[in-house]
Each structure stands twice: as structure tokens, then as C-alpha cells.
């Protein structure tokens, strides 16, 4: 009987007038479950958005947002006059562009290589190994990088053993950038293949069979079937990555950077941390954060728009 009353058709007819109360009562337990997660979002995700007002104030810790003096866009004006801000912005863009140029295609190539392996066991072992670095913290990876590549590290003693001169991998700025990018590839390339491998499974096998009959070589099949097959996935991930062009993780530049290369390694995330938590200038740090959010959104929308125009596909 209960099931009959609860079936969707009856419910609508029976309770047209008292919809809201009816649903609240019927799904009371479900709403109860949602209470804590929604409270979490309100406190830790939405309440901070109110704090963004600090960017337009001369924020004073003792008077709070309610009592602090409003200064309009003065904080932004001040920031846009700082050389250190432009340095952080430039470094963020440069490191992200290099990641885009090298770190983005790397998992695509690796996924295709893996996809061409016929030996199932080898493929599986390879995947297990390739995913491993993703699970190591940046502190650990940074520690390893310093142990292996510092002036007294393994890499340099190997070079010395070969009679070559030492390379300052981490204390010369140009070398540091190369290390930053390569270590990033080392950490993320395997994990990045998962999505592409999933997309590769979805490619119609008949296309390959038809190509075989036409006598197409493996490389031609990769170029004409495999790559177009995963193009939608590539485009979506590309748009998302361009949307993140001005935001950069904190851990990687913070852990890999050092005082000798800070001219290249100081990025927006470490800059916000330094002026906000370090120097305690909340208004400035909030303003830089807001700038980053807004520009990031603009990048995302623009990348999506361009992708839609050129390849007819976007993420919304």
C-alpha cells in the first residue's frame, strides 16, 4: 500500500497543494543527511567569499571586516605598482606555459605508447609503476631532487666519474626551470595517462581493422585513428589547463625553490603566502587572490570560446 502511494504518479496528484511540506516529510531523512555537508560548504567554502571584501579595505585585524576602512581599489593600485607582484605573475605564467608545452603532451604520448603494447602483463606492470610518483608528497619529491641533484648529489658524482664538469642543477636559474618542468613530468605523467587510456578503449575497433585491410602502418593508424579518437578528451583537458594558467599549486614551487633561484621560483601562490601569512598583510594577499580567481575565470571562458569556434567543442 505504501509503495503504491509513494509511486511518482500518485504522489503528484495527491499532494499538488502541499508539495513542499510533503517532500520535506517524505525525504526528511535525506535532507537531514545533507545538513552537515551543506553546513560545511557554508562555513568553509561560502563564508570565505565574504572575506574577499578585505581586498577593498585597509583591513585591520582588530576591527574586522565590519569596522575596517574602505579604500576602494587602492589595494589593487598598490599591488599593480609592485615589481614583486609582476615577478610572481610572470614566473607563474612562464612555469605554467612550460608545463603546458611539455607536461601536457607527455601523458598523451605515453598513453599512446602504452596502448600499442600487446603484452597485457607488461602493460599492467608498466601502469602500476608509472602511477607511483603521483602518490608521493612534494616534500618527499623535493627532498629526493635535492639529494640527487645538489652539487654533492648523485647526478654530479656521476658526471664527475665520467670526467665531466659539475652542473648546478638547482642553483642556476635556467637549470632550475628545466628541473622544475622535468620533475613535474616525472611526477604526473603516469597518472595523466589514465583518462586518455579510458578514452582510447572507446575507439571503434572496426576503424583499425579497416585500416589494416588498406595496409596502413602503425604510425599512420595512430595519426589517423587513435589521435582523432581521443581529440575530445584532449580538448577538454586543454581548456581546463588553460583555465588554470594563472593559478599554480603551492607545494611544487615552494619545495623545489630556494633562495638562489627565487627570482624565477617565486610564483603567485608563494607570493600570497609570503605577504599574507608571512607579513600579515591580509588586504594585499586577498586582493592578489581575487585577481587570480578573476583572471583564471576569464582564461577558462576564453579558452572554451576559442575551442568551440575552432574545433566545435567546449566544456559547456
Amino acid at each position: 500500500m505504501k509503495a503504491v502511494i509513494n509511486s511518482p504518479n500518485n504522489r503528484i496528484q495527491l499532494n499538488r497543494k502541499n508539495n513542499f511540506m510533503y517532500y520535506l516529510k517524505k525525504d526528511f531523512l535525506l535532507y537531514l543527511l545533507l545538513l552537515l555537508p551543506l553546513a560545511y560548504l557554508a562555513i568553509f567554502r561560502y563564508a570565505p567569499i565574504y572575506g574577499v571584501l578585505m581586498a577593498f579595505q585597509d583591513y585591520n585585524l582588530f576591527q574586522g571586516i565590519g569596522g575596517s576602512e574602505w579604500v576602494g581599489l587602492d589595494v589593487f593600485k598598490f599591488i599593480f605598482e609592485q615589481n614583486s607582484f609582476y615577478r610572481a605573475l610572470k614566473n607563474t605564467l612562464v612555469l605554467n606555459l612550460l608545463d603546458l608545452a611539455i607536461g601536457f603532451p607527455a601523458p598523451i604520448i605515453l598513453a599512446i605508447l602504452l596502448n600499442e603494447i600487446w603484452h597485457a602483463r607488461f602493460k599492467k606492470v608498466a601502469q602500476s609503476i608509472l602511477y607511483l610518483p603521483h602518490f608521493l608528497s612534494w616534500v618527499i619529491i623535493g627532498g629526493m631532487v635535492y639529494l640527487l641533484f645538489s652539487t654533492g648529489g648523485l647526478a654530479n658524482s656521476l658526471l664527475a666519474g665520467l670526467g665531466l664538469s659539475k652542473i648546478e642543477f638547482l642553483s642556476r636559474k635556467e637549470n632550475w626551470i628545466v628541473m622544475y618542468v622535468l620533475v613535474g613530468v616525472w611526477q604526473s605523467v603516469g597518472w595523466g595517462t589514465i583518462i586518455y587510456l579510458a578514452a582510447l578503449v572507446g575507439i571503434n575497433k572496426e576503424l583499425y581493422e579497416a585500416a589494416d585491410i588498406d595496409g596502413a602502418s602503425r604510425l599512420r593508424k595512430i595519426w589517423h585513428i587513435t589521435l582523432p579518437g581521443i581529440r575530445p578528451t584532449i580538448m577538454i583537458l586543454l581548456i581546463l589547463q588553460i583555465g588554470r594558467m594563472v593559478s599554480i599549486g603551492f607545494d611544487r614551487p615552494y619545495v623545489l625553490g630556494n633562495s638562489l633561484v627565487s627570482e624565477y621560483s617565486d610564483v603567485i601562490s608563494t607570493y600570497v603566502y609570503r605577504i599574507g601569512i608571512g607579513a600579515g598583510d591580509f588586504s594585499q594577499a586577498t586582493a592578489v587572490g581575487l585577481f587570480q580567481s578573476v583572471v583564471g575565470l576569464v582564461f577558462l571562458v576564453a579558452a572554451n570560446y576559442i575551442s568551440k569556434k575552432i574545433v566545435g567543442q567546449g566544456i559547456w
Binding site: G51, V52, F282, L300
Partner: peptide, 12 residues
């Protein structure tokens, strides 16, 4: 897509 950022979250 949008969050308050480091310092506002810290304040909360």
C-alpha cells in the same frame, strides 16, 4: 569555480 582564496579561508 570560485573560492575566497587563502587569506579569507584562513580568517574563517
Amino acid at each position: 569555480f570560485f573560492n575566497g582564496g587563502l587569506i579569507p579561508t584562513y580568517m574563517v
